[in-house]
Every structure is written in C-alpha cells, then in structure tokens.
C-alpha cells in the first residue's frame, strides 16, 4: 500500500493543505469570484490579462471565477459520492465479514461482479437513462465505487471477529448491533478513512469524465464541464489553452492530495513495506567508540557515522 513512505510527513501536510485550500475556495467562491456566474465580461476566448489572469472562455466568462466556483461542485460530488460509496461498502463488507456463510458468499459474488464491470460505461448508461443532474451523478458514482471498500472492510471484519474481546462481548450476550457499532466500527475507522480519501479521487475523476461526455449537471459549473466546454467549443483551434489547462491541473492537484492522504493512512497498517533484503547502496560504518556500551542517544550522530559508497549495484549501470 505505502507508496509514499518517504514523503510521509511533509507530503501529507502538503496534501492536507491543498484540500483545505480547496475547501476554503469552495466555501467562499461567491466572495472570491470577481465576476458573477454566467456573465459575459469580454470577447470569446479572450487572452489572459491583468483583469482576467486566466483569460476568458467560450462564452466570454472569466476563467478564474469559473475555476473558483467549480471547486464547490467538485468537492460536493467528491464528498457526497464518496459518502454513498463508504456507506454501501461498509454495510456490505461488515455484513459479509460478520455474518459469514451464505450471506458472505452472495454479497461477495455481487461485489466481484461490480469489481469487473467497467465502471465508467456503466455510469454513462445510468446517467444517460436518468438524465443529467447533480444528485444523479452523485448517486451513480457512489453506487459504482464501493467495491474496494467492501472487500477491505470484509477482510478486516473477519480478522477482528475472532479477536478475544469480540468473542468475549458475544459471550457476555451483547447484541450483534452493539458489537458491530461499539467494537468493530471503531477499529475499522483508519481503513475506512484511507479508502474514503481514495474514493473521493475516483469520484472526482468520474465527475470530470461524465461532464466531458455531456452528462454533467448543466446548471452548475464544474472543472469537468470547463474541460468539456473547451473541447466541444473548439478552444483548441482558437489556441485558448487557458480554457482547459487550469481545470485539469486543479483536478490533478485534488486527486494527488486525496491519494497521498489515502495511501499515507493505509501504509501505517503494512509493516511488510518497511524493510527490504537488497544490498544497501552503501555500507554504513561507524567509528568505534570506546567499548560500545554507550551509544550516542539522539543529538548529532551523523558526524560520527562514516558513510562510504560501495561499488555501484548492477541496476545502476543499466
């Protein structure tokens, strides 16, 4: 799981910062945006200028203002769809893992099915039938993004189920509901948080994709719809890169932030990733201090530690 062990502290801090900033922008977009929604302030695809630092779009609207307003849609879709997915995933996973037997088999077959079915085409079909609206998009994305969560919580529940304190609680006659809410769910929290962050990333991707195919909510501004507008109203031939580059970068920033946080939380659970058996690239020698009984505890020990590079590994040559 842990992709980002080395980035851990600073990376998670930066990622959390990006998300916090996006949240603030989403909350205060109406105050920050310099022009009202839907208002034409200049020529179609007007170039960036001091008044409009990111230029104008196909309808002569200020791109920066759209970008600020779009943050709200993206966060709403990301958070709400992720919530739907978390609720379904946890319910399915905990029920399957806790009940076991045929309940488990049936639920897992269903999960397997949703795992292989291509999610985006499925979303497209459903969104096309239901018609485009924000709530439909949220539901569709949520309904198709819960499989990973279900698998993880099921595995975790199955291992927790056999732990002493749960067996004890059961022996003492606690109700199943009480065992699940009091004993199981608290232990699942880190896993759920990690996976929810990753689901937010998936949801944002999906929203952008649906919007790009013309299935986005036509009444609200989103980064996905900005890219779609730029594409379908020939920003390319107009040379107006400013109409699609900023929203794409914003999507990437939020997705990276969610992934870093998700992986960062998940990695704590996997000790297998903390070491390896490859030859180290350098042998680290220390000057022998007297005896060796007293070690440097804290402080600057790097000065005493000689580091010598050994012959380069084979991988290095290739």
């Amino acid at each position: 799981m842990s992709q980002f062990r080395f980035l851990r502290q600073p990376a998670i801090a930066v990622a959390a910062g990006v998300l916090a900033l996006t949240l603030l922008v989403a909350l205060f977009a109406p105050l920050l945006a310099t022009s009202e929604a839907g208002r034409r302030v200049g020529p179609v695809f007007g170039s960036p200028s001091s008044a409009h630092p990111l230029g104008l779009d196909d309808a002569g609207q200020d791109v920066l203002s759209l970008l600020l307003r779009g943050a709200r849609t993206v966060l709403i879709v990301g958070a709400a769809a992720s919530l739907v997915a978390v609720l379904i995933g946890c319910a399915v996973g905990v029920l399957a893992g806790y009940a076991g037997g045929w309940v488990d088999s049936v639920l897992m077959r269903i999960t397997d099915y949703f795992l292989v079915v291509p999610a985006l085409p499925f979303m497209i079909v459903v969104a096309a039938i239901w018609g485009p609206s924000l709530s439909h998009i949220i539901l569709v994305i949520g309904l198709l993004s819960w499989t990973q969560m279900a698998r993880l919580t099921r595995a975790q529940t199955m291992s927790l189920r056999e732990r002493g304190y749960i067996l004890r609680a059961r022996g003492l006659g606690s109700s199943h509901l009480r065992i699940v809410t009091r004993h199981l769910l608290p232990h699942l929290t880190p896993l759920v948080v990690a996976n929810a962050a990753l689901t937010v990333a998936t949801a944002i991707f999906a929203e952008a994709a649906l919007a790009f195919l013309g299935l986005g909510d036509p009444t609200s501004v989103s980064w996905g719809r900005m890219i779609e507008h730029a594409f379908s109203r020939s920003a390319l031939s107009a040379g107006a890169w400013w109409a699609f580059v900023p929203p794409g970068l914003c999507i990437a920033a939020v997705v990276v932030a969610c992934s870093v946080i998700g992986q960062g939380v998940a990695e704590i659970a996997n000790p297998q990733l903390q070491h390896d058996h490859l030859p180290p690239r350098r042998v680290r020698l220390r000057a022998t201090a007297a005896g060796g009984g007293e070690d440097d505890s804290g402080g600057s020990d790097s000065g005493r530690r000689l580091r010598r590079r050994t012959a380069a590994t084979v991988m290095e040559e290739s």
């Binding site: 952008a208 994709a209 390319l236 699609f244 794409g248 999507i251 990437a252 990276v256 992934s259």
Partner: peptide
C-alpha cells in the same frame, strides 16, 4: 530517483485522460 519516479507516476495518474488528450 525513487522520489522523482513516484512523484511523476502519481502526477500522471492524477491527470484526467481527456485533459491529457487535449493538451
């Protein structure tokens, strides 16, 4: 090297396909 590769993999992963195509 690892850091550079991971950061670039993550970035490429996070860019929407339609946007990469347009770019």
């Amino acid at each position: 090297t690892d850091r550079a590769l991971t950061v670039s993999s993550l970035t490429v992963y996070a860019l929407p396909a339609q946007w990469v195509g347009l770019l």
